[in-house]
Design a protein around this nucleic acid. Structure first.
Lengths: 199, 199
DNA sequence: CAATATACTTACTACTTAGTAAGTAGTCAA
DNA sequence: TTGACTACTTACTAAGTAGTAAGTATATTG
């Protein structure tokens, strides 16, 4: 991998592990065994780096959405989406939405715009998946597909914070129930369960 | 208010607006019209300040949970909880769970422990509310009350990120649907809505 | 009235930070 | 082979960082 791409990859890791204000050109340079000025050569300002990190993630999500089209089952598509977050929970990272949202006011207007487009892409993809899934009976939920997409995205994003604070097992509880909530099963319905299950 | 308390209040604002690594002793001192050393007098290290900020929020939540006991209606208690987040959405701040979760690895073990206790308090309170509410028919949901509490807490936490990235209106959509999801209404059920409502 | 404690200030240190300017080694094309 | 281009390096600056040491004004108390 080129130095350019290694900076982007490490920058993404650092941004989602420690936050945009918690790493410096020195940290990047030191880890990649180059001088800080080499990082400035590829990304003149820290904001230029942030912008590239966000756009790289956006491209990665486009690649994901193309890849997942090979899978016909909509429930499995959803689970593939959840798996992206599960991998981050394992490594202790949060998602870019969570990281960029927390550091939002440290970013330039351009970078905030890129974050906005990135999140809109995710919400649009999830909205379409849910809409299509409800029409064919693969998913069951109340309200607008877009609102449900926002609910699921916020669940997954903050689950990564929960995994850090309370432990990785919490991610499994949250994401497991989240999938159950919208995937209709044969045995149980919303109403019947209100008394049989305990605390 | 004393300088000590003003530092705590402003520190809390800055931590939740810009992040733990995005403000300095100078920022605090400058805003409060004192010298940076005065801030060190009250909070010798930045970590001591972070710890106090977290414990202050925990105490504030205890006060909230006592206050809300005056309200008998469990649905209204839930809405009071949601209102705390709505106020943050308005001012552009995120919640301490979201902020401390993002900056988790910049905090000391002691402070992380305090964050854990703070989040556990919230989850315990919400779990009890949901459990009691399901038993008396005020709330309807699948799964364990604690899991549902985690789902609601993560929804609200990341909704504040969404409010920053996509706009404040998104918070209303998310929190509105979240409340609808568990508050049984007379007219609509989970199943009947799957075709009448559009995208 | 003297001693003590509180809540600061001034003055400082050692270090980190993003960013720049100028130079260099290697490649590649005309 | 010369001249440009890429991908760096060395060397530097100005500003910001957490944290410390010593001094000071003002109450409070024995």
């Amino acid at each position: 991998m080129s130095t350019h791409d290694e900076i982007l990859s490490l920058g993404d890791d650092l941004m989602r592990m420690h936050g945009f204000n918690a790493f410096s050109y020195y940290h990047l340079a030191d880890a990649l065994k180059v001088r800080p000025a080499a990082v400035h050569y590829h990304f003149p300002t820290k904001d230029a780096l942030a912008l590239s990190i966000v756009n790289r993630s956006r491209e990665a999500f486009h690649a994901f959405s193309e890849r997942v089209l090979l899978e016909a089952d909509l429930q499995i598509r959803l689970k593939s989406f959840v798996r992206i977050f599960a991998e981050n929970a394992d490594t202790g990272k949060i998602c870019l939405m969570g990281a960029a949202g927390a550091d939002f006011y440290s970013l330039s207007e351009d970078t905030r715009g890129a974050v906005r487009l990135f999140v809109l892409d995710i919400i649009a993809w999830l909205t379409d998946l849910l809409d299509e899934g409800r029409q064919c009976g693969d998913f069951t939920f109340d309200g607008l597909p877009r609102t449900r997409a926002l609910l699921i995205a916020t669940n997954l994003a903050a689950s990564l914070h929960m995994a850090r604070i309370l432990g990785k097992k919490e991610f499994q509880s949250i994401s497991g129930q989240l999938v159950k909530d919208i995937c209709p099963s044969k045995k149980s319905t919303k109403r019947s369960s209100s008394k049989v299950r305990g605390k």
